[in-house]
Amino acid sequence: MTEHSTELDLELLRTGEADPAIARHVAGCAQCRDRLARLERDARALAMPLAAIEVPAECDRAILALARRRAGFVAEQLERRRRPRWLRPLYAAVPLAAAASIIFFVTLQRGAQAPQATAPLAAAATGDINRDGRVDIVDALLLARALKSDQPHDPAWDQNRDGRVDQADVDRIAQAAVSLQRRHP
């Protein structure tokens, strides 16, 4: 290489990301070595370590609790996948039977209207705002329109359960809609 290295070449060399040919040239070129030394000085001047923000212990606890819950969920998902296919209906039947008996009991206590009242709430809480059985960008649109119109907020729209219905809930639905982990029709 006969031409001097560019600033970008030298910057990549500084961080170990450059092509070996650049390194060879700089090793034999006093002018480029001086420029590299100057760049190193400038890089130190530009460096600005992030401020050390004290994180309260309760914040740590909340996030670590979330971490453990998610880990439990992941482990459970994997365990389900490992179960023999022919046994899955049996495993599924146990919680379903329990849920059915609870619903039956609640229905007896509250009358027949209770399940109808809670079903839409559950649907909206999972992001299915228009209750068409799927979560997609149309749900985000509808929630965004509702926020813009200042109509009363349904508590079931609070997707992130922070006690507020706002743009973060719209974003959560939209983000869920584009997630590659979900099955798209």
Partner: peptide, 16 residues
């Protein structure tokens, strides 16, 4: 794989 210690370590490493 659902390893809780790994979740916690990811948080501790990147929290600050």
């Amino acid at each position: 794989q659902g390893d809780a210690a790994a979740f916690e370590e990811l948080y501790r490493r990147h929290r600050d």
